[in-house]
Structures are given as C-alpha cells and as structure tokens.
Design a protein around this nucleic acid. Sequence first.
DNA 1: TGTAATTCCTCTAGCTACTAGAGGTTCAAG
DNA 2: CTTGAACCTCTAGTAGCTAGAGGAATTACA
Lengths: 138, 138
Amino acid sequence: MFSIGEMSRRAKVKIPTIRYYEQIGLLPEAERNGGNQRRYDKTGLERLSFIRHARDLGFSIDAIGALIDLQNHPDRSCKSANDIAVAQLAGVRAKIKRLRLLEKELARISLGCDGQGVSEECYVLASLADHQLCSKDH
Amino acid sequence: MFSIGEMSRRAKVKIPTIRYYEQIGLLPEAERNGGNQRRYDKTGLERLSFIRHARDLGFSIDAIGALIDLQNHPDRSCKSANDIAVAQLAGVRAKIKRLRLLEKELARISLGCDGQGVSEECYVLASLADHQLCSKDH
DNA sequence: TGTAATTCCTCTAGCTACTAGAGGTTCAAG
DNA sequence: CTTGAACCTCTAGTAGCTAGAGGAATTACA
C-alpha cells in the first residue's frame, strides 16, 4: 500500500493534484488507514499514471474521464476511445497551425525593431496598434 | 463618442470583456454620460484595438500592460517593447515544438487503433496506460 | 408624447486545472 | 517519549474571461 506521498513520487503528480482528482471524481475515493490517511494499491497507481500520461498529451479532464470509463468496461467497443484520440490530434494540429501564423507575424514584428530607438517610432508598438501592418490574418 | 456596444462591434471585443479590462486597469476608467453609461472617444477605441490585437498574438495581459505603458511614454527606449515581443516569439516557438511532439505521438497512437475492437485490447488505452509504448519522450 | 425594445448598469458566481497556505493531526525514527 | 516529516481539511488564489440576475437608461416608432 502506498501513501499519497509515494503515489506523488511514483506518478510524478503533486499531492494536492491527486486530492483534486479524487475530489472531482477522476480518481475513486481512496481507502483510508486508521488515522484517516489515504492508502493506495497498484491499481490506484496505474490509474494515476494513466491520467498523468494523458494530461501530458494534452487530453482534457473530461476526455480522460471518458477514457477511464471505457477502461472500466473492457467489453465495450473502443471506437469512442479512438474518436477521442483523433479529436485530440485534430485539436493539436489546429493549435500548431495557429501558432505557426503567430510565429511568422511575431518574427516579422520583432525584426522590424532593433531596440535602439524610442517607443514613439517603435515598430513593435506600431504593428500592434495597426492590424494593417500585419502580413496575414491571424 | 461611442457607447460600449459600439466599441464592442468595432474592436470585436465582447462587452463584459471591455468592462473587465477597465476593472483590472488595462483600460482607463471610461467617462460617463448623464445616465452613468460609458462613453469612449477615438483614443479609447485605438487602445482597445491595440489590446485585442496583442491578445490575438498571444501576449499576456501583463505584457500588454507593459506595452501600453511604453506607448504612454513616447520618449522612452523601445528596447523593452522589443524584449517583450522576442520573449513572446520564444514562447510561441517552444509551444510549437512541444505540440509537434504531441502530434507525432497522438498520430501514432490513433493509427494503432481502428476503432473496431473492444476496449480491452484498445491500443489507444494501452498506450496511455503505459508510457513505455511511446516512441519518444514528450 | 407614450411605450416597448434595446442597451446599458453593477454585482456575483462560474469556467479549467490546478496551486498555495493556514491550522491541526498522525506517523515513523531514534 | 519526543520530534520532525508527512498527512488531513478547508479556503482562496491563479488567467482571462463569460454568464446571469435584477434593475436603470436610451432609442425607435406610433
């Protein structure tokens, strides 16, 4: 049996976060010892690691909840698990696309200013003030 | 003079957001008409558009506050404006890098599952449960 | 000029996913 | 038996808004 501190070290999830996951129902309520402290078994650790890994991949708490639900029903079709992963992938791709546009625009803006002048003539400030100065939509 | 609704339409910023910006001091307190409603002039609109544009480019409220501060002191060096833009660019590039890794991993994971099986053997769920199955760190 | 629709006001609470701290209890080592 | 680390609950704070209640002002139209 692991204490919450053990769990934290092993799964690399902070203690308050573990309690938070329990509070919102992402983790089941932990068993307690005589002194009201949480004790976990291997299953609990695996579940926490699953959550951690999915969070690292950017899945939302809701999505992770749905995935855990599927895990608990091994006989169900895994279509929705795949759907969730595909949606996540699409979201990531959309973010990348948008960030690429921002990157371009920011690079252009900061290149236009050498940091030597005064702010009145600063190209950074001018660009932010006037969207027309942007090369593309973003 | 514009009402808050005019401002909202022109700068494409929602009305509660405008009030929020005023509340946190990003916008100065607006003048009021006889009936206590906010009235803005061209300067106010320009400032709001500046904020909107900077937010679109992902700048934090704090960074925008610093930029506005510079705008209000036209004689100051614009080095810090450029610093802020460069930091923003670096942040965007870091995010892109990380998202690219996630994209790879998610693509691999979702390709491993055709959505036809049952969740017990689902590659999506297995991958999330076991970090070892990942091709790289992320 | 009356009235009805629209816009505006303030205030409070909610969202995501945690994180930090206060004040107090339990555990483990020596 | 004592001491220090680890644990407990509870509240509040983070960013950047967004939504809704309940009421006042403005505007359009007859």
